[in-house]
Design a protein around this nucleic acid. Structure first.
Lengths: 111, 111
DNA sequence: TTCGTATTTCGTAAAATTTCGAACATTACC
DNA sequence: GGTAATGTTCGAAATTTTACGAAATACGAA
């Protein structure tokens, strides 16, 4: 059970605050997924390992600067990471955090 | 497999628009879950069937009007519903839409 | 009918999100 | 050193979100 790697306070409310750390994390990840463009990007990245901003820009109906903004937010949420490669930047999922988001959200949805 | 009740365009991109209907739905549900208070409420409701606004208000560190606003957003997202009962209002999950959210998000997270 | 309880809606304000085009960075190649 | 290719950051504007207290609503009970 991979769940054992994430501690859940949700059942015991084992913290002073009524809203737990995990609930805040869930909200944070959900916020990152709260835009169609970002859902599209995450879905693409979890299917094919990596992609370039240009690939996305070709298909998505938003300005490059807008796309860049969304990528920045996914990066700030910890869900993706970008590696500079020549004139381009290669974006990949941040597997570790993606896994945490999976576990937290799936658990949250399964209660 | 309950998945058969939700059609996924995510693999085939079977629509004219690059962003699919389901990706928009996922973003919409994620947005509803994008605040700690709303995560708390959803988690409580999926654990115990129903609750009253007052119960929540007692525990959460927000003004009643703020809580009411969050409940309204969950209602607008289709995730909860409120039934008038005496002077109070009893909030429950909207099981049908909650199930859709579960299926869409879990599938999205499992790709 | 008047009062108290439970909760929402309104008005308002601050902060965050979303979007775009223009300007700026970085590197590869003549 | 120029120039093209690929992206990001900046500046600005519109919209949305979040939050609160005060006022309004709805209803049961005295």
């Amino acid at each position: 059970m991979s769940y054992t790697f994430v501690r859940y306070f949700t059942n015991r409310m084992a913290e002073t605050e009524t809203i737990t750390r995990n609930q805040k994390k869930i909200a944070r990840y959900a916020r990152a997924m709260a835009h169609p463009v970002r859902v599209y990007v995450l879905e693409l990245l979890s299917r094919q390992n990596c992609c370039y901003s240009g690939d996305l820009s070709e298909h998505l109906p938003v300005a490059k600067s807008t796309l860049s903004q969304h990528l920045k937010e996914l990066k700030e949420a910890g869900l993706i990471q970008g590696e500079i490669e020549a004139p381009r930047i290669r974006y990949c999922l941040n597997r570790e955090n993606w896994k945490e988001a999976q576990e937290l959200l799936k658990h949250f949805l399964s209660i």
